[in-house]
């Protein structure tokens, strides 16, 4: 402990760097990309409107990624986030249709009401996942793949594959508003959830327990943790995040449909892994995931500023970045560990 206090600034920085090497790499990539864009397409990227647009776009999959992150910290995964999002948004769209009167207006309490209900539905669907994983011991990847299919199936059965719209535009308009004409409402929802989860993970007992459970379920049991309840809570939180993501999709598309956002399932997993969460469990920070979300959005939007380059290249770049970062981690983190292993 003596060493910790007398550490030189440089050494302290080095420690900061080596503790969160992954995080710094993401920041580095973001800065490099921002500089590149600044040199080539400054005026078309660095505008308030552009940043506002980006901030309104990413919360829908950003929220889902936060849920996937929580599950991955426990050593699981949630592949049902898109199913939960769509089911919630479809049910809420039906409710909004009911509440829309002849003049196309909805009562003032409608929007808070649908959000509260959405959170409730998301929690319930998440609890369903949690029970499958904890009480029935189904591997999370299979349980949530199945429930995701089931939720999507219910969406299809309800809507016959059609979009549900024709509800009051007030809803979309409200969510697409900007607070003080500056900050998009979607971003506010995302930030609130991100802060909440950051707080849960780093400042509460629940967070510590989650990391411990993800490290070793057996040791958690032998330490007296209520592992089943922890898992159910985790998947419930993931369900809530996904439901809120669904509500944002409902606003962004002004309609709900069973097959909206299907690419998000794997995209969320990709973001979370890119954010430095270990799929085996026990490791990962929300800061990394948020940076990965931002990096992803900036890459995509930035690329759109080059009309000659097909926007589809984004998925190439994105997969490439993921593999690149993993290979870098392999070289920097495996080597010293390997050396240690030999020394033993």
């Amino acid at each position: 402990m003596m060493e910790r206090n007398t550490m030189q600034p440089l050494a302290r920085f080095e420690k900061l760097y080596s503790n969160d090497r992954h995080l710094w790499r993401l920041i580095f990539l973001i800065i490099v990309w921002m500089i590149f864009i600044a040199i080539t397409r400054f005026s078309r990227f660095y505008s308030l409107l552009n940043f506002q647009t980006m901030a309104a776009q990413f919360p829908e999959f950003g929220l889902m990624s936060l849920g996937v992150m929580l599950c991955m910290i426990t050593g699981g995964i949630d592949l049902s986030v898109v199913g939960i999002a769509n089911l919630t948004s479809i049910l809420m769209a039906y409710l909004l249709i009911q509440m829309t009167n002849a003049s196309g207006m909805i009562p003032a309490y409608a929007i808070p009401l649908v959000f509260v209900l959405a959170v409730g539905i998301g929690a319930a669907l998440g609890i369903f996942n949690g029970i499958l994983v904890s009480k029935f011991h189904i591997p999370p990847i299979l349980a949530t793949m199945g429930s995701g299919e089931l939720f999507t199936g219910i969406c299809l059965a309800l809507t016959k594959g059609n979009a549900v719209s024709k509800f009051s535009r007030t809803y979309a308009r409200t969510i697409n508003n900007r607070i003080f004409d500056l900050i998009p409402v979607q971003l506010v929802i995302f930030i609130v959830m991100a802060i909440l989860i950051w707080f849960l993970l780093s400042r509460t007992v629940f967070g510590t327990k989650l990391y411990m459970l993800g490290t070793s379920a057996t040791a958690a049991k032998f330490s007296g943790l209520k592992t089943d309840r922890l898992l159910i809570k985790t998947y419930m939180l993931s369900g809530v995040c996904a439901a809120l993501g669904g509500m944002i999709m409902l606003a962004n598309y002004n309609s709900a449909r069973a097959d909206y956002g299907t690419v998000y399932t794997l995209q969320c997993v990709l973001i979370v892994v890119l954010g430095g969460v270990n799929p085996v469990g026990g490791k990962g920070k929300i800061s990394g995931v948020v940076l990965a979300i931002i990096l992803l959005r900036m890459l995509e939007t930035g690329l759109n500023r080059f009309p000659t380059i097909s926007s589809y290249y984004i998925s190439l770049i994105w997969g490439g970045v993921l593999i690149l970062i993993m290979v870098l981690n392999y070289f920097t983190e495996n080597t010293p560990r390997f050396r240690k292993k030999i020394a033993r």
Partner: peptide, 18 residues
């Protein structure tokens, strides 16, 4: 899982982009 997630994205990108 990570590699194939990444490569599936790369393959899609080559197909739709290149």
């Amino acid at each position: 899982l990570i590699v194939t997630l990444g490569s599936s994205s790369v393959f899609k990108g080559i197909m739709q982009g290149a």
